[in-house]
């Protein structure tokens, strides 16, 4: 028996990790922060340029600094991944040949081929992941879930004219987040009830069939209880004449300030520059310079 901690699910289901330092970044408009995250992710995914990723890394780190978030907090998510990240990068380097124009073979041994392209791909993988983790951490450290859902709804509002159910979608996200603690509580109750009847949830049990058979008496009631709760919520909302987003007013009005525009413009500038850099092959120039002057 692993003790009662086995049943404590509530503490494990927090989304994000808001860190109230009250900095300038925390006070930014959530809409602006959302757009900045989307821009950053797009730039990271699109960028094939090491120089571009270095620029993005610098931008994210300066964001973390101005949000007064200790760097070790942001890096904590990266540490457990590090061994595997290196392994993946290695796989990228040796196992997946990256040919294409101008690739030179550096090393070859039976089926393993290393080209300069594949080395670059490995380094890019690590750089991309690091920027992504730090960027998303910055967002979740500085934005509460309430701000997040408000931001989503306000951002999608112009799309409502095109028939996109913005208000409804924001409400879905909100219900999902608000439901989490309830679900954790229900699951705890179910686990205790089943355990008192002799159930063992087989943590640490590696046999697939036993694990599954022991999980079913927890999962199926969990779904059914949630559906029951959903019915109650539907009834409660309909009893209060909930009619969707039409003609609804809001308690909180988001107002973008000068600092929001400045932040947005600078992130958009960096993203545009990064995308431009991957089109012009800035790395090629840096690489050529390095090989000419150092090798």
């Amino acid at each position: 028996m692993a003790g009662l901690s086995e049943f404590e699910l509530l503490g494990r289901v927090t989304i994000g990790q808001y860190l109230p330092t009250g900095s300038r970044v925390h006070h930014l408009d959530p809409r602006v922060k959302l757009v900045m995250v989307v821009l950053m992710i797009t730039a990271v995914v699109v960028s094939h340029s090491l120089v571009g990723l270095a620029l993005l890394l610098a931008a994210v780190v300066s964001g973390l600094l101005s949000a007064r978030i200790p760097l070790r907090f942001a890096l904590a998510g990266l540490r457990p991944m590090l061994p595997f990240l290196l392994l993946l990068a290695l796989l990228q380097v040796v196992a997946i040949p990256q040919y294409g124009a101008g690739a030179t073979v550096i090393w070859r041994w039976s089926i393993l081929t290393v080209t300069d392209r594949s080395v670059l791909a490995g380094v890019l993988l690590i750089a991309r992941f690091t920027v992504m983790v730090l960027g998303i951490s910055l967002f979740s450290f500085s934005t509460t879930t309430t701000e997040l859902t408000h931001g989503v709804e306000h951002l999608l509002r112009p799309l409502q004219a095109l028939g996109v159910p913005a208000h409804e979608f924001a409400l879905v996200v909100n219900i999902a987040i608000r439901f989490l603690p309830i679900l954790a509580e229900e699951a705890e109750r179910l686990m205790k009830a089943q355990a008192s009847r002799g159930a063992d949830f087989g943590r640490g049990q590696r046999n697939f069939i036993t694990r599954t058979r022991r999980l079913l008496p927890l999962l199926v009631p969990l779904f059914l209880v949630s559906l029951q709760r959903a019915e109650e919520l539907i009834e409660a909302m309909e009893a209060r004449s909930y009619l969707g987003g039409k003609g609804r007013t809001h308690l909180i009005h988001l107002q973008a300030r000068l600092s929001d525009y400045v932040a947005l413009a600078s992130v958009a500038g960096v993203a545009a520059l990064v995308i431009r850099l991957s089109l012009t092959n800035a790395d090629g120039m840096v690489w050529r310079w390095l090989t000419e002057h150092l090798l």
Binding site: E168, L171, V172, V173, N174, I175, A176, I177, F179, L180, L183, S226, L227, R229, A230, L233, I234, M237
Partner: peptide, 9 residues
């Protein structure tokens, strides 16, 4: 809306 939210949760 509610079913989507709850299943998402």
């Amino acid at each position: 809306i509610v079913i989507a939210g709850v299943m998402g949760a």
